[in-house]
Simulated scan of single mutants.
Amino acid sequence: MNVLILTNHLNFGGVSVYAHQLAALLVRKYGAKVFIGSRGGDLETELERDGIKHIRLPLTTKCEVSPKVFVSALRLRGLVRREKIDVIHANTRVTQVLGALVSLLTRRPMVTTCHGYFKRRLGRVLMPCWGRRVIAISDQVWDHLAYDFDVPADRIDLVYNGIDPQRFVPHGAAEIAAQKQAWGVETDKKVIGHIGRLSSVKGQKYMLLAAGILRGRHPEFRWVIVGDGKEEVHLRKLIAEKKIGDIVRLCPSAGNTSLALAAMDVFVMPSLQEGLGISILEAHAQGVPVVASRVGGIPTVIEDGVTGLLVSPGDPPAIAAAVEKLLEDRSLVEAIASRAQKRVAEAFTLDSMTQKTQAVYQSVL
């Protein structure tokens, strides 16, 4: 099978990681020939290693009717015909429209994955561009598609995002100490961490406000946010305003996610919206307890008090209380981490996700 996967970029983030890992396993396990079309990014160098061909496209736009989308469609038309692409798989709004154009020009079927939540704008009503089938990454996203956008239920496939648990391995004290030092954190300090794209919808500012709340009682805590994005300027301004620069670190995207997570004592996911949360799955696989917002698909992953702690979105005092609860109760941490690791291995593996996605591809041929 020959597959063309489309996404806006390949910088670190949930959709990019999804596209890369899905493509890699399709190549390795199913012998597929996979192309990823995007404007490029941090993960681009890893594609060649995994046998994936990258097609650079001028997708430096969020406008679905930008001339860049039409230019990209004309370029991909030739690729689809030349490489005998069987399925086009779009993963963002811009690439949904792009994929629909390429599908129209080449008569090749398109499927889409809905990774989160969308506003019901006129463009989506007039040009839904969902493709022949739509993959929902959580039960809540399935409901969003069916009830907010009237996508017929028999066209929606529920396929949970997945990770490879074997990538998340134990790390020695020396490795963890070196990682903390790279962040500018003393090796004996507790780390409350977060990994993700820096964006207002990810709610990182509420984590910083929680840091300010706990500073008086727990000056030994260090708060580390790992990631890149447009929100960095606002986060640094907030750190300065709250005078918490001595206990907070903003660090660039992690090359070794397993090691970064191993250096954290608690992982915080303070999102205001979230389709599912790959970072949560990764933290669970690494054995790190998670405090997360009760939004979107996160409750699909976390059962409150069982596999993590859930808090109301945008609630710094609740984040602070949950973090404090975990760091003061070692037995609770161990129980939650153990159950969460087991849950990921049972329900959220990359192998299962890829198998079900490949079945969706087969269904449209």
Rank of each mutant, 00 (worst) to 15 (best):
L4E: 02
T7F: 09
N8R: 11
L10E: 02
N11Q: 07
F12K: 01
G14A: 03
Y18I: 02
K29L: 08
A32H: 15
G37Y: 01
D42K: 06
E48C: 11
R49F: 04
G51E: 01
G51P: 05
I55K: 04
L57I: 12
T60E: 15
K62I: 03
V69N: 00
S72Q: 00
R77I: 00
V80L: 05
D86M: 02
V97F: 06
L98Q: 05
S103L: 08
R107I: 03
M110D: 03
H115Q: 05
Y117I: 01
F118Q: 14
L122H: 10
R124D: 12
C129P: 07
S138Q: 08
W142G: 01
D143Q: 03
H144M: 09
L145N: 10
D148I: 00
D150G: 07
P152D: 10
P152S: 14
I156C: 06
D157G: 14
V159Y: 12
V159K: 08
V159E: 09
Y160A: 12
D164T: 07
V169E: 01
I176Y: 12
Q181V: 04
W183P: 07
R197W: 01
V201C: 00
M207H: 14
L209G: 08
L209A: 14
I213C: 08
R217P: 04
V224P: 06
G227V: 03
K230G: 13
E231K: 03
E232T: 13
V233L: 13
E241H: 10
G245S: 10
I247S: 15
V248E: 14
A254Q: 07
G255W: 03
L261H: 11
L272I: 13
G275L: 08
I280A: 13
A283K: 11
H284W: 15
H284M: 14
Q286W: 08
Q286Y: 05
V288D: 07
V290A: 09
A292E: 09
I302W: 12
E303D: 12
G305Q: 04
G305C: 10
G308S: 06
L309R: 11
V311S: 04
S312G: 14
P317C: 07
I319S: 11
E324Q: 10
E328R: 10
R330V: 14
S331R: 06
E334G: 08
E346Y: 10
T354V: 15
V364A: 00
